[in-house]
Design a protein around this nucleic acid. Structure first.
Length: 195
DNA sequence: CCGGTGATGCCCT
DNA sequence: GGGCATCACCGGT
């Protein structure tokens, strides 16, 4: 799939994109020359009308990347110690994005174990702040274009709806009624199965 | 396996 | 100064 096709897909709503990118790959090129590849298995959508979204009250210094071009990475710092990452969607000037909540390691296991020492296999990347540790994603990658190195989104064919579960979002206090969380059925890397 | 809780920094009001 | 799109660890089953 070429870059123009990927950009066209990411111009859609965060709900459509959140579902569409399940099964696609994140490819991380590390400074030491090694490469980590992971498959996206859990996402959540956040749009500007959504009280749970960082963009709800309009553009600020912190959330400004959400209002920029689709396909860039919005990285935020939370709870005093964790980074989480989102893929920006939609038109410029609109604040919306898809939170990556969990990924499944495909290759680069040795690098991931090094960044997540002492963790069992299924605890390496089954949460939004765990996967940023595993992939070395922090504020330095805020605003990064995901069609370029050192972190690329490689879009794969759409996954059949029958293989996807849709639920309420996790870890938020407001906006819990919205069914904007998407994950691959029975995947052991999903942050909270049966939820 | 499960629920409760402390850690910890920064943005926004 | 409040409140976080979380995690790791603890103790009880």
């Amino acid at each position: 799939m070429n870059n123009q096709d990927i950009r066209t897909i990411l111009l859609k709503s965060p709900q459509e994109v959140g579902r569409r990118i399940l099964g696609s790959l994140l490819v991380r090129q590390l400074d030491n020359g090694n490469k980590i590849i992971c498959r996206i298995v859990e996402t959540e959508a956040y749009d500007q009308q959504d009280i749970a979204s960082h963009s709800y009250k309009g553009q600020t210094k912190r959330n400004s990347v959400m209002f920029g071009p689709a396909g860039h990475l919005y990285v935020y710092f939370t709870y005093g110690m964790h980074y989480c990452c989102n893929i920006v969607t939609g038109q410029q000037g609109v604040g919306e994005a898809v939170l990556i909540r969990a990924v499944e390691p495909i290759s680069g296991w040795e690098e991931i174990f090094r960044k997540r020492p002492g963790k069992s296999k299924n605890e390496l990347t089954n949460g939004p702040a765990k996967l940023t540790q595993a992939l070395s994603i922090d504020k330095n990658l805020n605003g990064h274009d995901l069609l370029t190195d050192p972190l690329k989104l490689e879009l794969l064919p759409e996954v059949n709806d029958k293989l996807i579960t849709v639920t309420r979002r996790i870890g938020i206090r407001q906006g819990q009624d919205k069914l904007w969380r998407y994950y691959l059925n029975n995947n052991i890397y999903v942050s909270r199965l049966n939820h």
